[in-house]
Design a protein around this nucleic acid. Sequence first.
DNA 1: TGGCGCAACGTTAACGGTAACGAATTTTGT
DNA 2: ACAAAATTCGTTACCGTTAACGTTGCGCCA
Lengths: 335, 335
Amino acid sequence: MKKRPTITDVAQAAGVSLMTVSRVVNDKPGVGEETRQRIRQLIEEMGYRPNEIARGLATRQTATVAIVVPDITNPFFAQIACGAEAVAFEKGYHLFLLNTAENTDREVAALDSLQQKEIDGVLLCSPRLPIDDLEATISQFAAVTLFNRELQNPLPNVAQININDVLGAQLAVQHFVASGRRRLALIAGPVTSTSGQRRIDGYRAGLRAAGLIFEPQAMEHCQPVTEGGRMATAQLLARRPKTDAILAFNDLVAVGAIQACEDSGRRVPDDIAVIGFDDIPLATIVRPHLTTLHIDLEEVGRLAMSKILEIIQQPDAPAHATHWIDPQLVIRDSA
Amino acid sequence: MKKRPTITDVAQAAGVSLMTVSRVVNDKPGVGEETRQRIRQLIEEMGYRPNEIARGLATRQTATVAIVVPDITNPFFAQIACGAEAVAFEKGYHLFLLNTAENTDREVAALDSLQQKEIDGVLLCSPRLPIDDLEATISQFAAVTLFNRELQNPLPNVAQININDVLGAQLAVQHFVASGRRRLALIAGPVTSTSGQRRIDGYRAGLRAAGLIFEPQAMEHCQPVTEGGRMATAQLLARRPKTDAILAFNDLVAVGAIQACEDSGRRVPDDIAVIGFDDIPLATIVRPHLTTLHIDLEEVGRLAMSKILEIIQQPDAPAHATHWIDPQLVIRDSA
DNA sequence: TGGCGCAACGTTAACGGTAACGAATTTTGT
DNA sequence: ACAAAATTCGTTACCGTTAACGTTGCGCCA
């Protein structure tokens, strides 16, 4: 690993001052065309690259954004990260990955450690952090985008991106009803999940719109994994055998629900229809292929990064409204 | 976002020079115990955090490592990233995420852009990059760990971590043979995959050890996804109907293989046994649960990060031998 | 012809730290 | 008791870059 040339080396080689080289590097005016070309060529020949650390110290901008996720192993967040990274790379930014392992203490510590890096912004996917900590965090950074959290009063340095869970659940109910199902049930996720709560709201709104009534015993909470979905569904079917449609909290839960249905001798979708949520890759691997609510998570990530770059590049712009991402019903084989 | 205090602010508040504060911050000797305590308290009160950018410029160490993966959306790499991030966080390091989207040009560009960031090391998961580019890249960075690539001559600044694919495939064959199967087949991955090549080698070695012969028509290459596995298996079964055991390139392919078996009226594992590779979460979601070769990928990530930190912290240590990670056969329902 | 304005460049001082060395002050050894 | 050695702290010079301001030199116009 040989030492890389500095801007001073280039300046000496070109017989000019380092400021002239700096102006060429940053495409700023104040350099004659001839000199500019000569320096450009020298930069190329010498393989000069500006040191981003030094630049960061001088400009207080590091061209770096962090993404904080509960679990990068979860494809849901991995896709968001993927979209965000793509835009960051396009725009010459770099992306720190922080994994909180679903642990609030670790999350606070991670956010704390980030301050020392003088990053330009944070993409925060933090379903669980208490609202106070959230607001404290936001005030520490120049720019933040919040995913699936709602702030009461919008701030100029914060963009918000939320999944329209209410709409998604409504679409699912609508599809059940349109295909003749009347005895719907909901396998909801964890009680604490914001997303889960909104999906319940949408489910109830959908029932209401169809003139059906919400029966509390036709809803079961569970852990957001396959096994949780299987157990919850088994319980629900035992309690309410005539159920003919299940909306699951997410695709993993939906797969568990299908398994429980099959275990009890029901055929999906003939006897009972199942709709999932998120459209993870698994949805087209299992059989029957899942009918589910598709969310373009890479697009969510791209949007999140674009928004934060807007804030970084024009910090004085007015506070932006929350972006709602509408899920789309993808009809496959399970409903 | 109010301005954070600098080391000079703390020094002035304490009535000492900034070097004294610097020594306290870095736990270096040369400061009296009383003064040290007083400064510690002031640091706490003022909420001082050293600016890592400035520190990076002065020390030429940024406490930052990058991980370059083909696709973070793939749980395989996500798990490695997760383990790497965990160790990085523990040790006070930060992690850049670079996603190459399986695109070699983008990978080269990404690696190039990283140089400007003066990072301390790179974790490179690059199955496809030509060996020349690989070596050129390595020479640009102070420390590198290479995942699943073999360098002919080890370098002092490079750690290598490889999956023992040969062993894994041997274990699978051994298990097939031990359970009475004799007509084995292999759904291999892409022809270009290093890992795939080694798994073929292990498969052949396993056959040899069991006194079976390798039949070229009992092997089929495919894309490393479910649909690829399904199609390749369908072809293979048509060509060689009496096959009673299939080793798949990975779990996704294994799921496709199972589907092809079921489509052709075969029951898994009664008529035909299937073993996957990698043990991704999907393995315990599909039915039958996959018998597969488990690789503790988070541990791989942790190891990769630990090794690179060793290199960073003592660059003069001798070149390290390649680490081989042994897969473990997890016997579930499919074989 | 002298003054003005502008283009093309250079100088200097940060940005917030750390390394290396130097200067006091205290402790130690004999 | 006094030199030598250690401890504690300060000074200075960077690290590589940019911002702000200076300095030329030249053309233009009254």
